[in-house]
Design a protein around this nucleic acid. Structure first.
Lengths: 161, 161
DNA sequence: ATCATATATTTGAAATTTCAACAATATGCG
DNA sequence: CGCATATTGTTGAAATTTCAAATATATGAT
């Protein structure tokens, strides 16, 4: 760990806007969902993934993975969603440990009500900011970044240094 | 609000990785800072901005703005940082309402200890994933996105629809 | 079958964030 | 000046997240 290799100007000019804007956009989306529909951005994601799953069923762990979240947090979140009737917990046939989470009619309704506005806002905040060319140009590098992160040796865990 | 205009495949292919990766990278950075240095990512930002400010002084509101945060949250955060001695609150000379926050020697030490690893991790997670060309190619669109967001009519507030 | 270990989820408590109300001071106007 | 209103920051309580520990079931080896 001699002299650290700081980011140069070009690196900064990409890195900072990248995270700052993303955080900002996510915050606006989250706020909007809370206020208009009483659900957080993460709640929305859960409902959305459920709505796309076969039989609108998913297990806690799968949901946690899809949303890049800890099982613990997801369990708490499901508690709250279930408490509001947007989602229901069922026992699984095959694995006594697992639970299956199902979207309720009410949950689907909330999602269907929220989705159009949500998409419109994503459009307004992000898509509209970029030309079609830029949109295409970004996709490649971003996909590479995804793969890079996936390949990383368990970035969430003990990387001794 | 007739039929909503959903995102097409190209738009999705840019939008989703954009936010997902950013959230993921931020989460890894946050986790790393917490574990190695006992500070959250936001704490790091506060210390960093203070260290760059003239006389290592900033007001709550300025800090909140820099970090895109509410005054309330920043006030709580400063409470905690001050409780740990990383930062100190002083009265302002000119404005009786305001407080000035100052980095303490201890705070500077924590920051200086955390910074090299933090930068190295940013490099590993983000910069290393991209070729120099890509890095340059991204900067432009991202800067436009920044400007777009800045120009937006108060996205954080009541957009009636 | 029995034990040891792994996996899936839950739980509870502490830390943090959100939200709305509350100071305290500043500013502008009649 | 003296009031009305705007800023700046704080506070407290409720909601959420984090973290570590607990529970329950599965799996594989003996």
């Amino acid at each position: 760990m001699s002299e650290p290799r700081w980011l140069d100007q070009q690196e900064m000019a990409t890195w900072l806007p990248y995270v700052k804007n993303a955080a900002r956009v996510l915050a606006v989306l989250d706020r909007d969902l809370r206020r208009r529909h009483g659900i957080s951005g993460s709640d929305y994601e859960v409902l959305h993934h459920l709505s796309e799953a076969p039989a609108e069923h998913l297990r806690i762990g799968d949901l946690a993975q899809l949303v890049a979240d800890s099982n613990s947090r997801m369990s708490h979140r499901i508690d709250r969603l279930a408490g509001r009737g947007l989602v229901a917990r069922h026992a699984t046939a095959d694995d006594g440990r697992g639970r299956v989470i199902q979207l309720t009619a009410e949950g689907r309704q909330v999602l269907e009500r929220a989705a159009p506005e949500h998409v419109a806002l994503v459009r307004r905040l992000f898509v509209d900011a970029l030309t079609p060319d830029e949109l295409v140009a970004l996709a490649g590098p971003l996909a590479r970044l995804s793969r890079h992160l996936d390949a990383l040796p368990d970035a969430a865990d003990d990387v001794p240094c």
